[in-house]
């Protein structure tokens, strides 16, 4: 019973915080509302005995949101509700799509005859996940690793505007490199 109440409260929180993302008029608040939504979901996942996933969700999403907050402020500064802000277009259409998808999904959810749980819950969900990722689902981990590595490189290439020729000169022999801020190691 307590679990059910916790789940319900956290679910309401997650949705409310998610809605707040698009209604508050400050970038910082929008970002941290989204973080609140993620943390509420992490709470749900924790209540569902998926400790590792819950903690990792909170960890990853906090880092993401902290960085995202900086980007938000960088590109559209507007602290603490100082300025009413609407950055919407096509609000009505978007709302229609959102409501339609929600209605469709909900209808499905409540009409489907869900089966009973198959098998008994694993005592240690963390162990179960680890065994899967390092065993039966190894391929997922391998692909994820490659995708993340590609993301690091692609992201850096997209975001930076200085290549090695900018740093080391046309013959790549300029030492020290021309950087706006020198790093901490001799190059």
């Amino acid at each position: 019973m307590l679990t059910d109440v916790t789940l319900a409260v956290l679910g309401v929180l997650a949705v409310a915080a998610g809605g707040a993302v698009f209604t508050v008029d400050s970038m910082a608040r929008a970002t941290y509302a989204l973080l609140a939504s993620f943390l509420a979901v992490a709470g749900i996942v924790l209540t569902l005995d998926l400790t590792y996933l819950a903690v990792v969700t909170a960890l990853m999403m906090t880092m993401e949101m902290a960085i995202m907050g900086v980007f938000m402020v960088m590109f559209m500064m507007n602290p603490g509700g100082l300025m009413p802000m609407t950055m919407m277009h096509n609000t009505r259409g978007a709302a229609a799509v959102g409501v339609a998808v929600f209605a469709l999904l909900t209808t499905g959810i409540w009409t489907i005859d869900w089966p009973d749980a198959r098998g008994r819950p694993s005592r240690d969900s963390t162990h179960q996940l680890a065994e899967a990722l390092m065993g039966s689902h190894m391929l997922v981990m391998v692909v994820v690793a490659a995708a993340l590595f590609a993301t690091i490189i692609a992201g850096t290439v997209l975001a930076t505007h200085r290549g090695r020729y900018d740093r080391f000169g046309p013959n790549l022999d300029a030492r020290p490199p021309r950087d706006p801020i020198p790093g901490g190691l001799p190059r």
Binding site: T51, Y52, V55, V56, L59, T62, D124, S125
Partner: peptide, 11 residues
């Protein structure tokens, strides 16, 4: 005491 204490600390 959880099955992911270390990650908890990290979080």
């Amino acid at each position: 005491s959880t099955t992911a204490d270390l990650v908890w600390f990290n979080t």
